[in-house]
């Protein structure tokens, strides 16, 4: 067996294989639904209905998609430079932490200025969070996969420590949660009465900004060059390590904005279960989007829909909600395989 490059892949090839991958992952999940003794079509229908079946459901999906757009962008930017940031979960929590610290301290600033301060603090926190592993990578050659993964555990314990200590809400009745944000430190809703906050709009703006950076700036070009071939990039005079540092600041900042948006837009306070794995799910979002910033928006909404739909489905049918995770993990694996097939042909011999 050998892989032979396809010189000019047709549109049918470029779209057909990824579509088939998504379809096949639904087939695999359907098999597991059968195992649960439920009807796959009915289950799929319930998932769809739970995701987009009503105005409430659709808004819930967009709300769930918001942090995923941020973490998806964070992963996409980093993976483009082959910087394996698996620490978006930690950066998310640091962003949320900074938001709470600055959002409960009664800054007394007029208008939207407290929000600007909080958002900026979150970005700095998240960026610094990823800076550490990147410096270890560039200075000592320490693999960033393991360091960013281990930092997720350390940061979560650190947050737990703060929530049971200095950051504990005195009104929380013993529950480990932070005090609520000041009223002027909340992201307002886009339309009064509808449960969708400005974090979603901010996520779309960030996606646009990342698209511009990648397509129109020198940094975008450098990120791609470093990702494709660091040795060649260095030979061409690109300061590889400095590009990696800039990528890390961008990626960590984006992941932290997810934490900012969840606290300031939705929850109003910090708890240990603020993220049901948004950082890790961001990897799926980014890969399904083929690392394209605009694709990230689409795939985040798709992934959020699956999760929201599966939650509502599992309440109605006897299928555990983990079916959503299986479906997405299968889709991720089949998608990387499908992308290979769009560019290579498998030949015998």
């Amino acid at each position: 067996m050998r892989l032979e490059p396809v010189a000019n892949p047709s549109i049918a090839r470029s779209l057909g294989f990824p579509a088939a991958a998504l379809l096949l992952s639904v087939v695999v999940a359907s098999g597991l639904v059968l195992l649960a003794g439920a009807n796959p079509f009915a289950t799929l229908g319930l998932i769809l209905k739970g995701a987009v079946g009503s105005k409430f459901a659709a808004l819930e999906t967009l709300n769930r998609a918001t942090p995923l757009i941020f973490t998806g962008l964070a992963v996409a930017v980093a993976f483009r430079a082959k910087l394996w940031n698996i620490g978006a979960e930690a950066q998310f929590y640091i962003g949320a932490l900074m938001t709470v610290v600055f959002g409960t301290s009664a800054l007394g600033l007029p208008g939207p200025q407290p929000l600007v301060v909080m958002g900026f603090a979150a970005i700095v926190g998240g960026a610094v969070m990823l800076l550490g592993p990147v410096i270890l990578k560039t200075r000592f050659g320490v693999d960033e996969v393991v360091t960013t993964l281990l930092l997720n555990f350390i940061v979560l314990l650190f947050i737990s420590l703060l929530l049971e200590g200095p950051l504990k809400d005195p009104m929380g009745m013993g529950w480990p949660k932070s005090p609520r944000l000041d009223p002027d430190a909340r992201l307002p809703r886009i339309v009064t009465g509808l449960r969708l906050h400005w974090g979603f709009a901010l996520a779309l703006i960030c996606a646009g900004a990342v698209w511009v950076i990648e397509k129109r700036t020198t940094l975008g070009y450098e990120i791609r060059a470093v990702g494709q071939n660091p040795r060649a990039a260095r030979f061409a005079g690109i300061p590889v390590n400095f590009v990696l540092v800039k990528t890390a600041l961008l990626s960590g900042g984006l992941a932290a904005l997810a934490g900012f948006s969840e606290v300031a837009g939705l929850k109003g306070s910090l708890t240990l279960d603020l993220s049901p794995g948004f950082g890790y799910t961001g990897i799926i979002v980014a890969m399904l989007a083929l690392l394209h910033p605009v694709g990230v928006v689409v795939s985040a909404i798709f992934v959020a829909g699956i999760f929201v739909g599966a939650d509502s489905m599992s309440r109605a049918a006897n299928v555990p909600t983990y079916i959503a995770d299986i479906l997405l993990a299968t889709a991720l694996l089949l998608m990387v395989f499908a992308i290979l097939l769009t560019r290579y042909r498998i030949v015998k011999g």
Binding site: I284, P320, D325, I326, L328, A329, T330, L332, L333
Partner: peptide
């Protein structure tokens, strides 16, 4: 991807 798939399969 394998980590996600194996973990969610076990939980499911």
């Amino acid at each position: 991807g394998i980590t996600l798939l194996a973990t969610s399969s076990a939980y499911y």
